[in-house]
């Protein structure tokens, strides 16, 4: 169900990321201002973009769940948000390393871009505790969907607010006029962004496949156990449902 196209997707992600790494270190020139340190940009910014898009995608999938009441959309939303949190952690750590090298501080509290990303990250850190504090699967999925939609809407609003604010030290690399990156840097950045997008989709599909298989197996086992207790050997077995259950912490 979810594993369709996983193998070519994995190969494409690995190839694109390998190409991106090659371009970062052997093709893109060193930045005139920051020198070699600016190479962090090619990993930090793409994972930040992919992570934020993952949060928004999680919200859109949650809308789809509320519209259709199809549990598979809830599962998709949950995995997208979960994976975005993991990438978000990477964004915060790589950002701190870059800040230390560039500004001499691990964190700058009066910088809107940094603080806003931290707020978004901490907001989404509440998603899982909220979700798993509700035992009823129906309510769990519905409440999680509402949270995902509200938080997903907050992400672009937050992004626009930060763009409109006065930046003190964080550079604005991407702008409506195309930014100030030369062609080689822009190409490297775009390949890196593509690589991380493919990686996100690959891991998302991988986790969905794993969760779906695990839940189907649990259901099958439960059914077999019940069947063994109730039915004599040789009698026909009832069909096993393929509807995905709610996400578990497994």
């Amino acid at each position: 169900m979810y594993s369709k196209g996983l193998k070519p997707l994995s190969i494409a992600s690995l190839a694109t990321l390998a190409l991106a790494l090659g371009l970062v270190f052997f093709y893109a020139p060193n930045d005139a201002d920051q020198g070699f340190l600016q190479k962090i940009f090619y990993i930090h910014v793409p994972i930040a973009i992919v992570s934020l898009c993952g949060f928004v995608a999680g919200g859109l999938m949650a809308i789809q769940y509320l519209r259709t009441n199809d549990r598979s959309w809830d599962m998709r939303s949950y995995v997208a948000i979960h994976l975005s949190i993991v990438l978000g952690l990477g964004v915060l750590i790589t950002g701190s390393i870059w800040a230390r090298g560039s500004w001499g501080h691990w964190w700058v509290w009066d910088e809107p871009t940094l603080v806003s990303f931290l707020i978004v990250f901490l907001l989404y850190c509440c998603y899982q505790p909220l979700r798993f504090s509700i035992e009823d699967p129906e309510r769990q999925a519905r409440y999680a969907a509402v949270f995902a939609i509200a938080a997903g809407a907050f992400v672009p609003i937050n992004f626009i607010a930060v763009r409109m604010s006065q930046s003190f030290s964080h550079p604005r690399v991407l702008s409506a006029t195309g930014g100030s990156m030369p062609g080689s840097m822009r190409l490297t950045f775009l390949i890196s962004l593509l690589g991380f997008t493919l990686l996100f989709v690959t891991l998302w599909k991988l986790e969905l496949t794993s969760k779906h298989a695990s839940m189907q197996l649990k259901r099958l086992k439960k059914r077999l156990e019940l069947d063994l207790e109730e039915r004599p050997a040789g009698a026909p077995a009832p069909p096993v449902s393929t509807v995905p259950a709610q996400p578990s912490r497994d």
């Binding site: 930045d31 201002d33 920051q34 020198g35 070699f36 340190l37 190479k39 962090i40 990993i43 930090h44 994972i47 993991v86 990438l87 952690l89 990477g90 750590i93 790589t94 390393i97 870059w98 230390r100 090298g101 560039s102 500004w103 001499g104 990686l199 891991l203």
Partner: peptide, 25 residues
Amino acid sequence: MPALPLDEAGKYVAAAYLVVFAIVL
């Protein structure tokens, strides 16, 4: 701040790439 020398900047760049690699791993 002026650009860091390559040996100094290299440590930060390696750390950032290793962190992402470790997270994915």
